[in-house]
């Protein structure tokens, strides 16, 4: 297991928290919570070691599209960058839904 964090400045607030995914083979779990620090904080724990730069690239791409003040916690069990991006997008979608 490897753990690391990334922080990027961000402005937009999110409506509510969101949870998606499971820590199962090739998948990951994301917990997205509204932040107050004016940044997007990514806290990652991953079963696949040595891919920190790949994560950085995925998050960079994500923050270009989603400028959100949020804390994003990730528990990963070997998801591919494609799956990670998809799950992140799903988390944002849920967090922006107005209904509880």
């Amino acid at each position: 297991m490897e753990s690391f964090s990334f922080t990027t400045p961000a402005k937009k607030s999110v409506a509510k928290r969101a949870h998606i995914g499971v820590v199962g083979s090739g998948d990951l779990e994301i917990l997205l919570e509204p932040g107050t620090s004016g940044t997007t904080i990514f806290n990652v724990r991953t079963a696949s070691e040595g891919f920190k730069e790949t994560w950085r690239a995925v998050f960079k791409r994500f923050t270009v599209h989603h400028d959100i003040d949020a804390i994003i916690t990730i528990n990963d069990f070997g998801a591919t960058p494609g799956v990670v991006s998809l799950r992140l997008a799903q988390a944002v979608e849920i967090s922006n839904q107005t209904k509880k």
Binding site: M1, H19, V23, E29, R45, A47, T73, N75, D76
Partner: peptide, 10 residues
């Protein structure tokens, strides 16, 4: 689990 290097679930 983390004590054994295994990713936990929330």
């Amino acid at each position: 689990l983390p004590a054994q290097g295994i990713v936990p679930e929330s």
